[in-house]
Amino acid sequence: MTRATETTPRPTSWWAAPARPVWEEPPGRTGLAAKGAVLVLACLAVLVPLWIVVVTSLSSKKTITETGGLVVVPRDITFIAYQELLSGGQVTRAAVVSVLVTVTGTLFSMAVSILGAYGLSRPGSVGHRFILLTLMATMFFGAGLIPTYLLVQTLGLTDSYLALILPSAVSVFNILVLRGFFMNVSQELVDSARIDGAGDLRILWQIVMPLSRAVIAVITLFYAVGYWSAWFNASIYLSDQNMMPLQNVLIQLAQKQEIPVGLGQAVRAGNLSGLAVQMAVMVLALLPVAVLSPFVQKHFKKGMLTGAVKG
């Protein structure tokens, strides 16, 4: 600690804890230690496995052979696994498919959900109660796997990326969250816009949406994560292995211990470890969500709690 901070204590320092209320007894040493230990352990339980995955994906075949498998302490960092994976071939294609499905699907879901949520958010509009009940009832029952499968097949969506988007495009929960926020936009604001001649679409676009940025960010993340993580629909509706998204390729690699098509050569040639390849695919699969979710974190609470239904 420098002299300056010693002589001028700054209560607003970023590290300083806010003052305790006077009536609260200061915590005991053991209590503090126990609490800290549990929290540190909980964080390590999340971070250590991720660390191992990332480090192993960056390790050379030599390091992996010497440690006998997974690498905890990074030694010589190499990006060879990523270079091989992303220079065309199965994994590159799967990653592109996943990105495209996620982007298209999220845009479609958001457009449909925002329109729907706004359409249901104006008090006293015709039929909004009935439509709302129709949507909410689906939260209590599912139609079942088999009838849904038969429907998607009959609609001719099998072997098409539409099968990965349309059946799961709408989440009623997300619509309720959006609607809860749209209803809280001040009615005076909406009315004054209407007097100025704005229609519903313009009010939604220029007033309601800019005021609901936080919740829109959260719901976008929810939808995007849903599309990015999905693998089941692809596994039952797609038969062409070349169309599979990243998660399905990861299943093949990890569960069945296969090597990505086209990489067998490099692995056999001895400069690339199959394990590093597998770990690199995992990093590709977790990178987007791990990077994006902390940015939206401070809004999660809003997104989770305004789902409460208002008549």
């Binding site: 509009s125 439509i131 949507l135 689906t138 429907l151």
Partner: peptide, 21 residues
Amino acid sequence: MLLLMTAPVLALVVVFNYVPI
């Protein structure tokens, strides 16, 4: 206009949640 805006959601839910029932 409001009804038109809810139409896509309603259509998707009816087709993929109600028809399969």
